[in-house]
Amino acid sequence: MCYTIPGKVIEVRNNRAKVKYNEEIREADSSLVKVKPGDYVVVQAKFIISKVPEKEAKEVIRLWNQAT
């Protein structure tokens, strides 16, 4: 089953982004999708592959935190 949660971009520099999740911050390549701090994104294989609208992202994160 496809589990995933969006993360929030907190910093972008030279196509590297710092993406914040509940408990950790991870680095991801941001060369494929144009992003800025504050954007919610999906990462696969260390690449940002899609932006997620803020409202949708917050709802997924809320449901996820309820379920775990």
């Binding site: 496809c2 995933t4 899609s50 609208p53 949708e56 997924v60």
Partner: peptide, 12 residues
Amino acid sequence: SYKMFGPTLKGL
């Protein structure tokens, strides 16, 4: 688990 997803994630 798809019930937790919004349209963007479902689309992926």
